[in-house]
Amino acid sequence: MEVRTIKVFTTVDNINLHTQVVDMSMTYGQQFGPTYLDGADVTKIKPHNSHEGKTFYVLPNDDTLRVEAFEYYHTTDPSFLGRYMSALNHTKKWKYPQVNGLTSIKWADNNCYLATALLTLQQIELKFNPPALQDAYYRARAGEAANFCALILAYCNKTVGELGDVRETMSYLFQHANLDSCKRVLNVVCKTCGQQQTTLKGVEAVMYMGTLSYEQFKKGVQIPCTCGKQATKYLVQQESPFVMMSAPPAQYELKHGTFTCASEYTGNYQCGHYKHITSKETLYCIDGALLTKSSEYKGPITDVFYKENSYTTTIK
Rank of each mutant, 00 (worst) to 15 (best):
F9I: 09
C227S: 01
G101E: 05
Y113Q: 02
H48D: 14
E125K: 09
L102A: 07
H276V: 02
Y172I: 14
Q195C: 12
V22C: 13
V99I: 15
K275Q: 07
K158L: 03
P78W: 15
T258E: 15
A177W: 01
T266C: 07
R167E: 03
T64E: 15
Q122R: 03
K44E: 15
N309A: 14
Y297N: 03
K44G: 14
G220W: 01
T27D: 14
K7M: 09
P241H: 08
S181R: 14
C225L: 01
P60L: 04
P78Q: 09
I301N: 00
S25E: 13
Y306N: 01
Q123K: 06
E308Q: 07
R141P: 04
W94K: 04
I124W: 05
T258H: 10
W107M: 04
A289Q: 10
D135Y: 08
L291I: 13
S263K: 00
Y155G: 01
K255H: 11
M85E: 02
Y214F: 11
M209D: 08
G220Q: 03
F9H: 14
D13W: 02
T199K: 08
S213P: 02
Y234D: 02
S295M: 12
Q30V: 12
T313F: 15
Q230R: 13
L179F: 07
E162K: 05
E215L: 05
W107R: 06
V243M: 05
A117N: 04
G39I: 07
T260Y: 07
T159G: 10
N309E: 08
A108N: 06
Y72E: 07
L114Y: 04
G194V: 01
Q222A: 09
G82Q: 15
T199E: 13
C225A: 01
G161Q: 05
Y155P: 00
N61G: 14
T35A: 08
G228Y: 01
P34N: 14
R141C: 13
M209H: 15
P97D: 08
K158R: 07
V236N: 02
D135R: 08
Y137E: 05
T198H: 14
K106D: 15
K183Y: 14
E308L: 09
T266R: 07
P131K: 08
F148K: 04
G39K: 06
P34Q: 11
D38H: 11
D180K: 09
Y269T: 15
T116C: 13
R139Y: 09
S86W: 12
A177I: 02
S294R: 11
Y57A: 07
E281T: 06
